[in-house]
C-alpha cells in the first residue's frame, strides 16, 4: 500500500515536471543573486608546493588548478565567472639606478630604492583584468602591475614615476613580473587551470598564491595558498656554506683550485 502511494507520487511529480517544461519551452530564469549572498566558493591548489632549485634548474612551470563549487554557469561560454590568480614572491629591497652622461662617460646617477618590492609577481586572468572588475576593486586587492605597492611614495612625482616604471619594465624583461590576460582557462562549467612560468633566475623564498573568483564584476570568493622555492642538494649546501661558513668556503674554493691545477699538470706533463 505504502509502496503504491510512493510510486504514484513519483509519477505525478514527473508528469508535472515534464508538463511544466514543455509548456514553457524555455530554460528557467537565472537565479537572482544579490552581491555578497552568492553561494559560489572557489577552491584551488598548486601542482607543486615546493620548487627545488638544483644544478639542472632552468626554470619550471607550475600549475594552479581549481574549481567553482555551486557554480550557476550552464555553459562554459556563458562568461558568468572570471578567475584571477596572483603569484607573489617574497619582498626584496630593489635599487633602480639611472645612468647620466658625465664628461662623455655614462655613469650611474640618481637612484631610487624600493624597500618592499615583490621579487616575483604574476597576474593570470581569464580575461583582461580591467574587463573583469572595476579599477577600485583591483586597487583594493592589489591586482595588476600598476597597482603594486613598492613601499615608496611616488604619486605626482614624474621623476619617481619614471623610476617605478623602469623597475616594472626591467623586472618584466627578466620574466619576474608578468601579466597574462588569458592565463586562466576554464574547462567545462566549473574547472579552471592556470600555468605560471618560474624562470631560472626565480628568487628563493615563500610565495603567496591567491585565487579570486568574480561573478559579474563582483568578488564572490577567494582562496589562498603558498609555495616554497628552495635551493636543494649541492646548490643548498654551497649556498649555506658561502653565507654561514664563509672562511671555510673560501678555503674550500682555493683547495679545489689548487687540486685541479695540480691534477691538470700531472695529467698533461710530458717530462
Amino acid at each position: 500500500m505504502r509502496m503504491a502511494t510512493r510510486l504514484l507520487t513519483a509519477f505525478v511529480g514527473w508528469a508535472l515536471l515534464t508538463g511544466f517544461v514543455s509548456a514553457q519551452e524555455a530554460p528557467p530564469p537565472a537565479p537572482v543573486i544579490k552581491p555578497g549572498t552568492s553561494q559560489e566558493r572557489v577552491q584551488a591548489d598548486i601542482s607543486t608546493r615546493e620548487v627545488a632549485i638544483q644544478s639542472d634548474f632552468s626554470g619550471i612551470e607550475i600549475l594552479i588548478f581549481g574549481s567553482i563549487d555551486f557554480s550557476d554557469a550552464r555553459m562554459p561560454s556563458q562568461g558568468t565567472y572570471d578567475v584571477i590568480a596572483l603569484v607573489r614572491g617574497p619582498d626584496d629591497s630593489i635599487t633602480v639606478r639611472r645612468k647620466t652622461r658625465v664628461a662623455g662617460i655614462w655613469v650611474n646617477g640618481p637612484s631610487a630604492t624600493y624597500p618592499d618590492a615583490p621579487s616575483f609577481y604574476a597576474v593570470l586572468s581569464s580575461r583582461p583584468v580591467r574587463a573583469i572588475t572595476s579599477n577600485d576593486t583591483l586597487h583594493g586587492l592589489g591586482i595588476g602591475l600598476s597597482e603594486l605597492d613598492f613601499g615608496r611614495e611616488t604619486a605626482g612625482n614624474p621623476q619617481e614615476q619614471s623610476f617605478e616604471s623602469a623597475l616594472i619594465r626591467l623586472m618584466e624583461e627578466r620574466n619576474l613580473y608578468t601579466e597574462n590576460d588569458s592565463g586562466v582557462v576554464f574547462i567545462g562549467r566549473s574547472l579552471f587551470r592556470a600555468t605560471v612560468a618560474l624562470p631560472a633566475n626565480v628568487p628563493t623564498g615563500r610565495y603567496r598564491v591567491e585565487v579570486y573568483l568574480f561573478r559579474d564584476g563582483d568578488l564572490a570568493s577567494k582562496t589562498k595558498g603558498s609555495l616554497e622555492v628552495n635551493k636543494v642538494g649541492m646548490e643548498a649546501t654551497i649556498y649555506n656554506l658561502a653565507f654561514h661558513q664563509p672562511f671555510l668556503y673560501g678555503v674550500l674554493g682555493i683547495a679545489i683550485a689548487v687540486l685541479a691545477g695540480l691534477m691538470g699538470w700531472i695529467a698533461f706533463r710530458r717530462d
Binding site: 629591497s93 630593489i94 635599487t95 639606478r97 645612468k99 647620466t100 623610476f163 623597475l167 628568487p203
Partner: peptide, 14 residues
C-alpha cells in the same frame, strides 16, 4: 662611451 640601450638598471639587495 656609447649610450646604453637602457639607461636604467636594477639591483636586488639579496
Amino acid at each position: 662611451v656609447v649610450r646604453p640601450a637602457d639607461l636604467y638598471s636594477i639591483i636586488p639587495m639579496s
